[in-house]
């Protein structure tokens, strides 16, 4: 722009107008882009949620509710019933019973089975054990994975000791047939 000519009031140079316009255009695109990303994330969350939101119940709640026993994937928490753990002669099939961690739980106990080695803290009487799996028609809880919560007496930074990561790696754990 020529410097020697005075600029009339109210005059907006052409290139500033242009800049203003591109600025607005970019801003609009930006908002669209942000909205697209946000919608995509929201949709992915929405799509992944139903399959992965599991009921989390205690042993007595589980035994008292038919809707939990229809073979759906569910988590049950409790503690190991004393002397209930058995291993079929040196195989990896284990059978055990879970009872409520607090209270007598109305005398309920849950027969469970698991194929594999048990996590380190499984046998600790203070441990809270969380089974993920589903109930079969033979009235046995087929466990896909076991989580053991550290006894709170020993404060540790890692609170949960996952027993079995593998079932999670390729999509949802398979439903028991």
């Amino acid at each position: 722009m020529a410097e020697d000519r005075p600029i009339p009031a109210g005059f907006v140079p052409e290139d500033e107008l242009e800049e203003e316009r591109t600025g607005r255009r970019t801003r609009n695109r930006l908002i669209i882009l942000g909205a697209v990303v946000a919608l995509a994330v929201a949709y992915m969350v929405y799509a992944a949620f139903p399959g992965n939101a599991l009921y989390f119940v205690t042993v007595s709640e589980f035994m008292g509710g038919d809707e939990y026993q229809d073979g759906r994937l569910i988590r049950v928490s409790g503690k190991l019933a004393p002397d209930s753990f058995q291993r079929q002669d040196n195989s990896t099939l284990a059978r055990f019973q879970l009872v409520d961690k607090e209270g007598d739980g109305g005398g309920h106990s849950l027969d469970a089975s698991y194929v594999g080695v048990m996590p380190d803290l499984f046998f600790n009487p203070h441990s809270e054990i969380i089974l993920e799996g589903s109930y079969t028609t033979e009235r046995v809880f087929e466990t896909d994975s076991i989580l053991v919560k550290c006894p709170s007496k020993y404060q540790s930074l890692e609170e949960e000791l996952p027993a079995d990561y593998n079932n999670y790696n390729s999509g949802p754990a398979p439903q028991a047939s």
Partner: peptide, 9 residues
């Protein structure tokens, strides 16, 4: 009811 979100999510 108490629910939990499984890792595949």
């Amino acid at each position: 009811e108490e629910i939990t979100i499984a890792r595949p999510y």
